[in-house]
């Protein structure tokens, strides 16, 4: 279960300092993030991530449907409190996530390097991710004002529409963007007061697990974001059909998968949002509309005298 490492920076440095024996590096066990804790998959299964350049690998949890079930239970439990937190408070917490991510830059850059990016690409991706969190932190107490409305009606009623979070959202994160894509999908969902269960990219899974550690140290209540690793092929049906999930965010371009998600979502009329694989660094990849994608509009007719 241990990662093999031949190019570990730490080991190298100590040896150069003149130690007689190389220190055995302490490598991270990549686990999943559920209910504010870091368990292993209940299935006991693992898959291996191999760095494209070779020389570095890690074992990741191959999550089962039961892991997903447990994560949904955790997300449902966390929703009650998170959805009631003041938008201002949610903004502060999201900003805190950005701060913690900033402090862990080096680790994320390292992981992105293992996943095949150049140092410049990696550094710019982490910086963009921090900025994206700050961006959505700012929206938490503003999107209601933009999208809510007082509606004109031709009778003696005061008619207004307000937004409420959808509930538990299942997120199938982008396969091709390990960190920025993931942050761009999760941040608007939780900014709007939803809780979520995320399936990280199976090709580039490292940053997702480490993001869980950042969330855990950022005052995001346990269960608001749950991050699983594993394979879409196995979990897609569960993500789209679970009756206690209220929305699905699907990232990807497979027509077959999209059809499956839309068909299954009809079971309990889940809200479905589709995102193609894209360059998540571009300006259009952020905005208030990803928040609106998981908001319900409640319209109230309030009688008034004339």
């Amino acid at each position: 279960m241990r990662n093999k490492s031949e190019e570990n920076g730490m080991g190298g440095q100590i040896q150069e300092a003149g130690a007689e024996r190389a220190r055995i590096p302490v490598l991270k066990t990549y686990k999943i993030y559920v209910d504010g804790k870091f368990p292993r998959t209940e299935s006991g299964r693992y898959f291996q991530f191999k760095s494209p350049a070779g020389g570095w690998s890690a074992n990741l949890c191959e999550c089962s449907r039961k892991d997903f079930r447990d994560a949904v239970t955790a997300a449902r439990g966390a929703f009650a409190k998170w959805s009631k937190a003041t938008p201002f408070n949610r903004g502060q917490i999201l900003y805190r996530v950005a701060e913690m991510l900033e402090g862990r830059k080096a680790q994320f850059v390292e992981e992105l390097l293992h996943q095949g990016l150049t140092r410049a690409q990696a550094e710019s991706e982490v910086a963009a991710s921090v900025d994206r969190l700050v961006y959505y932190a700012g929206w938490t107490d503003k999107f209601q004002q933009v999208f809510s409305a007082v509606n004109p009606v031709a009778s003696s009623y005061f008619n207004f529409s307000v937004l409420e979070p959808t509930g538990v959202v299942a997120v199938l994160a982008p396969e091709e963007s390990s960190l920025l894509g993931l942050v761009s999908c999760v941040a608007p969902v939780i900014a709007g007061g939803n809780s979520c269960v995320v399936l990280a990219s199976s090709r580039l899974p490292l940053c997702a697990v480490t993001l869980g550690e950042v969330l855990n140290s950022s005052d995001v209540p346990g269960g608001v974001v749950n991050i699983l690793t594993g394979f879409r092929k196995e979990l897609l049906a569960q993500f789209s059909s679970h009756m206690d999930v209220n929305g699905v965010l699907y990232c990807g371009d497979s027509a077959e998968e999209i059809r499956k998600v839309q068909t299954d979502a009809a079971l309990n009329v889940k809200r479905v949002s589709l995102q193609p694989e894209q360059d998540w660094a571009k300006a259009e990849a952020q905005g208030p509309y990803p928040i609106l994608a998981f908001q319900e509009v409640k319209t109230t007719w309030h009688p008034i005298g004339n």
């Binding site: 449907r65 079930r69 949904v72 569960q238 059909s241 679970h242 009756m243 206690d244 079971l267 309990n268």
Partner: peptide, 8 residues
């Protein structure tokens, strides 16, 4: 075969 919700 589908996980259920207490909502129903």
């Amino acid at each position: 075969g589908v996980y259920q919700s207490l909502d129903y």
